[in-house]
């Protein structure tokens, strides 16, 4: 556990070697741009884009559903990479990134499931379709990552929690592939449409809005992960400072 050598350990800012907050000028403008982007996607998606010939107004859900699905997998990929890097190199940076990715990923995975079900009801006539590979895989992924967060919440020595969580992240990442495979064979009657992007059936305006939604989602994820990372980083620094003080107090016991 290395800590910055500079600064006075008794004041938070001095010891942390930087301002004790999670925002910066960059994240402020990134957040502002993201909010503007959300407004733009909402305006385009709700007012400009025409209703779909087949799906009607329900098609508008894809502007939330598809970006949150891709975002969920991207964030959880971050968790998988971070888990490996912690186990391999004991990199604190990656450990905190893995945790940040999992929290954002669970949020987006939940959003994907809810919007998917809302879309499924008018389109397929049912909220839940067991035969759909992506839906079932996403649910299992959601449950695995909830397990990851519950291990993170167990508490205990910092290194021990990181290692336990990293193994769960690794096990989850490998097994989610097998889950996908098995559900694929099992269901073998998928309702899920093929990728909406490549089948060429989307209206121009719909496609444009979807692309904008992807960009905005990427910005939102970036913003969330950065803030969550900095919270994790500050938590570490704070814990280090507490330990530093505890070491001093303990040495004082011995009269030194």
């Amino acid at each position: 556990m290395s800590r910055p050598a500079t600064g006075d350990p008794t004041t938070p800012t001095g010891y942390l070697g930087g301002p004790a907050r999670t925002g910066s000028r960059f994240t402020f403008w990134l957040g502002a741009a993201t909010l503007a982007g959300f407004a733009g996607v909402a305006a385009l998606g709700l007012l400009v884009v025409p209703a779909d010939d087949v799906q009607g107004d329900a098609v508008r859900i894809i502007f939330v559903h598809v970006p949150s699905a891709l975002g969920a997998y991207a964030a959880l990929g971050l968790t998988a990479v971070g888990s490996v890097m912690w186990l391999w190199r004991r990199s604190q940076w990656w450990d905190i990134t893995a945790h940040a990715g999992a929290e954002v990923g669970v949020l987006l995975c939940g959003l994907m499931l809810v919007t998917g079900m809302l879309w499924g009801r008018p389109t397929w006539g049912t909220y839940w379709e067991w035969g759909d590979v992506r839906l079932v895989t996403a649910l299992i992924l959601f449950l695995v990552m909830v397990g990851y967060l519950s291990v993170r919440a167990l508490g205990g020595p910092a290194g021990s929690v990181s290692t336990r969580a990293a193994v769960v992240g690794l096990v989850g990442a490998v097994n989610i592939g097998i889950v996908n495979r098995s559900v694929n064979w099992w269901a073998n009657r998928t309702l899920h449409q093929q990728s909406s992007l490549t089948d060429g059936k989307l209206e121009d305006m719909t496609l444009l809005t979807l692309i904008l939604a992807f960009v905005v989602a990427a910005m939102a994820i970036w913003w969330m992960v950065m803030h969550r990372f900095r919270i994790g980083w500050l938590e570490r620094q704070l814990a280090d400072r507490d330990i530093h003080q505890a070491v001093q107090a303990r040495r004082a016991e011995a009269g030194r």
Binding site: I140, L143, V144, V146, G147, S150, V151, L154, G156, R164, V168, V171, G172, N175, I178, V179, R181, S182
Partner: peptide, 21 residues
């Protein structure tokens, strides 16, 4: 979950989704 106080409740949460296949 070995050595964790809440291990009896956490293990099923971790294990059951993974063994779905």
């Amino acid at each position: 979950v070995a050595g964790v106080r809440a291990h009896q409740t956490v293990l099923p949460i971790l294990l059951l989704p993974v063994v779905a296949p």
